[in-house]
Amino acid sequence: MKKLYCFDFDGTLTYKDTMFLYLKFYNASKFRIQFIKHIPLFTLLKLNLLDAEKVKKSFISSILKGQSKAKIEKKTQEFFDQYYPEIFRENALDFIKNIDYSQTDCYIVSASLDIWVKPFAEKFKMNLIATKAEFKNEVFTGNFVGKNCNGPEKVNRIKEEISGKKFDKAIAFGDTSGDQQMLDWANEGQFKFFH
């Protein structure tokens, strides 16, 4: 029986959101300054008066824009070395260890940037569907390639990735409203399964 597993990353496999963790790790002093500057935007976002994608892009860009791909990759590896496996839910790690990859295609489907989720996906031998960082001449532009990978976009991107493949069952794992469409789309939607 051929199965498809789609895992949300932040909060589902991990205990905490990795965006703030990574950006703070990347440059703590810049993070503090930009966090304070972004408080009004975060507040408007909480009140649903601003688009999440815009705020996210603005905040990530304020710390990483103009950074070289080489430096970002180096910092990402350091981030991985420091936070794996401690930020992961033990139940999730146990579950992943027991996956039969000969019968299962696994994807991490994350709104987080591919930049910092990639080494974790590689560690788990999973494919990665995430919000894509845009690089020009090996430098991060501060923009995304395509849309923020959240909500309906998660389903669009999964369908794109698995186009032409046949599965007997698709099982999705998530923990927030941003995963709802993916959970509804799958044959089986598991909400907060590893909590």
Results as ranks from 00 to 15, higher is better:
Ile171Arg: 05
Glu78Leu: 03
Asp175Ala: 12
Ala172Arg: 07
Gly151Ser: 10
Pro152Tyr: 12
Lys56Ser: 13
Glu90Met: 09
Ile162Pro: 07
Lys71Ala: 01
Trp116Val: 04
Asp105Ala: 11
Gly178Thr: 02
Ile108Met: 06
Leu50Glu: 02
Asp184Val: 08
Val155Asp: 02
Cys149Arg: 11
Ser163Ala: 11
Phe193Ser: 11
Asn150Thr: 15
Glu86Val: 06
Lys74Cys: 04
Gln34Ile: 01
Gln67Asn: 10
Lys57Met: 07
Lys169Asp: 06
Leu49Met: 06
Gly151Tyr: 13
Lys57Gln: 10
Arg32Ile: 10
Ile115Ala: 00
Lys74Gly: 00
Glu160Asn: 13
Lys71Pro: 00
Leu47Glu: 05
Trp185Phe: 15
Tyr101Met: 14
Asp81His: 04
Ile158Asn: 08
Thr18Tyr: 05
Val139Gln: 08
Asp81Val: 04
Asp175Trp: 11
Leu21Ile: 00
Phe144Met: 13
Lys69Gln: 07
Lys2Ser: 05
Arg157Pro: 05
Arg32Phe: 13
Cys149Val: 14
Gln82Glu: 09
Cys106Lys: 01
Phe31Asn: 06
Ser110Glu: 11
Asp114Pro: 03
Lys166Ala: 02
Thr12Ile: 12
Gly142Glu: 05
Lys54Asp: 07
Glu138Asn: 15
Arg157Val: 05
Phe31Ile: 07
Asp94Glu: 14
Leu128Pro: 10
Gln103Arg: 14
Ile115Gln: 03
Ile129Leu: 15
Ala133His: 13
Asn98Glu: 12
Phe191Ser: 13
Leu183Pro: 05
Leu49Gly: 04
Pro152Cys: 07
Lys169Tyr: 10
Glu153Thr: 02
Ser177Glu: 09
Val139Asp: 09
Tyr22Thr: 03
Glu138Ser: 14
Phe25Pro: 01
Lys75Cys: 01
Phe31Leu: 06
Asp168Arg: 01
Asn91Asp: 14
Leu183Ser: 08
Asp114Thr: 06
Lys46Thr: 02
Ser68Phe: 00
Asn143Leu: 01
Leu23Trp: 03
